[in-house]
């Protein structure tokens, strides 16, 4: 079963999955909170926050990676603080790759959740209020279940983006086999050396398979949710 991929290729696949899952998981709660704030909030600086969140979508990934290096690098203001206070180092570590992927996928996650928040019937939330539910409970008992399909869609987009992220990752955490070499970085490396075509092709196939599986799974989950109340 494991023969058709070399140990280095397996390492890249495992690392990619780990980075993508951590990136997706870590951005989920902030994603929901920021989508909610942008859609429902009336506060100063909402526009600025909106622009900030969407910036990674329009900036060249290399720019995002370089900005991360400046901010979160060992000598960057945030990176130095994290290293001193908590001993957390992000640059040139797989955690840094996860951070880069999370930031690149964040606008996609927020957009998907925000779109589904937009379609939630506010009247249902009013009805829950008249039944005695505190606004916090209204969110958990009514709003959250209703936007679940949007959250699932956003998670898949974020995961897929993380699986394919290259520019920001390689700029911020480089291309270290076993530490920061994800599938795209590994494919890039293979194409740079003679005789690497086989590895590149195999990893490409793996990448395609994972993407298809993710799409299929999200479709299945969304259908399960939808079947209950949109039958």
């Amino acid at each position: 079963m494991t023969d058709w991929l070399s140990p280095e290729e397996w390492t890249a696949v495992r690392l990619s999955l780990k980075v993508a899952l951590v990136a997706m998981g870590a951005s989920l709660l902030p994603g929901i909170a920021i989508a909610y704030a942008l859609e429902r909030g009336r506060f100063w600086g909402r526009q600025a926050l909106d622009v900030m969140v969407h910036l990674p979508l329009v900036l060249p990934p290399v720019v995002v990676g370089y900005a991360l290096l400046l901010g979160f690098g060992r000598r960057g203001p945030i990176g130095a603080y994290l290293a001193e206070q908590f001993g957390i180092v992000l640059s040139f570590r797989w955690t840094g790759a996860a951070l880069a992927c999370a930031i690149m996928g964040f606008p996609l996650l927020v957009r998907a959740i925000r779109l589904s928040l937009e379609t939630v019937d506010r009247k249902l939330e009013d009805a829950a209020g008249t039944l005695g539910a505190h606004p916090v409970w209204v969110f958990f008992a009514v709003t959250l279940p209703l936007i679940l399909p949007g959250i699932i869609a956003g998670m898949v987009l974020s995961f897929a983006k993380a699986m394919g992220e290259f520019g920001a990752t390689i700029t911020f955490v480089s291309n270290i086999p076993g530490e920061t070499q994800t599938i795209p970085s590994a494919i890039y490396t293979f194409t740079q050396v003679p005789g690497g075509e086989g590895g590149a092709l195999r990893l490409t196939l793996v990448s395609v398979a994972i993407s298809i599986a993710a799409l299929w799974m999200s479709e299945w989950m969304a259908r399960r949710v939808r079947r209950r109340f949109l039958a």
Binding site: D121, K123, L124, D126, A128, V142, P145, L146, L230
Partner: peptide, 9 residues
């Protein structure tokens, strides 16, 4: 309410 506003989920 005029429309029943039942929770669909």
């Amino acid at each position: 309410f005029q429309e029943a506003r039942l929770f669909p989920h």
